[in-house]
Design a protein around this nucleic acid. Structure first.
Lengths: 157, 157
DNA sequence: GTACGGTTACTCGGATACCGCATGTCCGAGTTGATGTGG
DNA sequence: CCACATCAACTCGGACATGCGGTATCCGAGTAACCGTAC
């Protein structure tokens, strides 16, 4: 079970974008340059964020990506879901259907005790992610390194 | 991000084994037969559980797998870790090292704010898994279907 | 000086290869139980 | 009847194929800014 590393890229990029002027967009190439990431591949993930409404994309000169809404309204869960998709990590294959006394008409994704237990854990994970926003992360980073905002702001100009 | 379906197989198999006599072992072929699973592949996962001490394997006639310890001492986290490995789903690649002001000697897996936020969420997930044991699952199943223990017990004889 | 049309350069977006890991399968090493024989 | 050596069948364990999703890349469609020209 491994999360796409695009999630890490997306989160860092969102924080970086939160430091720029909300008005103007930053091209994917510039955003990738900050961390020496492959431009095209980062672009792919940014497109996913745009589809989710987290970013807004603009084409043409002076185009690029900018935040789609206030950083305080963007949770880490939003970003993770945009990149990884909405499905749970644990996917009940309903093997009880092939077991003794298994009924074909029952949705074991709901009724299976093990499935419920796993979903309970994933819910805790999602809740913890939903409780943290891009604004929270940004605030923590600024407290630790007050120079960071202006530094990356300059880097993205 | 997708969890191996071996986890589902392993959990169901552990619950099934908790219903058999602690003394005698059940071959992988018999365990696979219950849910019509591919024997060899299930066997591979059971080996992982044995390496983790969750199961004990015995070769030769009358051999097979049996629980390595009391079901109340086997948490869902134990099983998941045995199958999926100990690594976190989110793996910090420390891209901050290549960013502005990145220091090669700093371990950003510890210090990076985003990495910490993600680990916080995974900790919530692991905690939720560790709070549930095979015995808990078994108890719930028995309450819903009192015939289940004897049925599978007969199936594994 | 201003408005407008054409051009140019720049950006995203989706279609296209590549690769590593999960999935799936197989045969050999080791062990236990059964069996047959001799005392 | 009992002890023991031999045999045979059964089981796990790791080594060997296969397929799919994440990784990485490229080129085309569309757009906005710029520039030159005409009024």
């Amino acid at each position: 079970m491994k999360m796409s590393e695009g999630v890490e890229w997306a989160l860092h990029t969102c924080v970086n974008l939160s430091w720029t002027d909300p008005g103007d967009a930053v091209p994917a190439a510039r955003l990738a340059e900050v961390f020496s990431l492959p431009t095209a591949y980062l672009s792919k993930h940014l497109q996913a964020l745009a589809r989710a409404g987290i970013l807004i994309s603009t084409t043409g000169p002076r185009g690029g990506f900018r935040l789609g809404r206030d950083p305080a309204s963007i949770t880490l869960l939003d970003v993770v879901t945009a990149i990884e998709g909405p499905e749970d990590a644990f996917r009940c294959r309903q093997i009880l259907k092939d077991g003794p006394g298994g009924r074909p008409d029952v949705d074991y994704r709901r009724t299976c005790t093990i499935s419920q237990a796993m979903r309970k854990a994933e819910l805790a994970w999602r809740t913890a992610l939903a409780e943290q926003t891009i604004a929270d992360v940004r605030r923590t980073v600024e407290q630790r390194d007050p120079a960071a905002p202006e530094a990356t702001r300059e880097r993205l100009r």
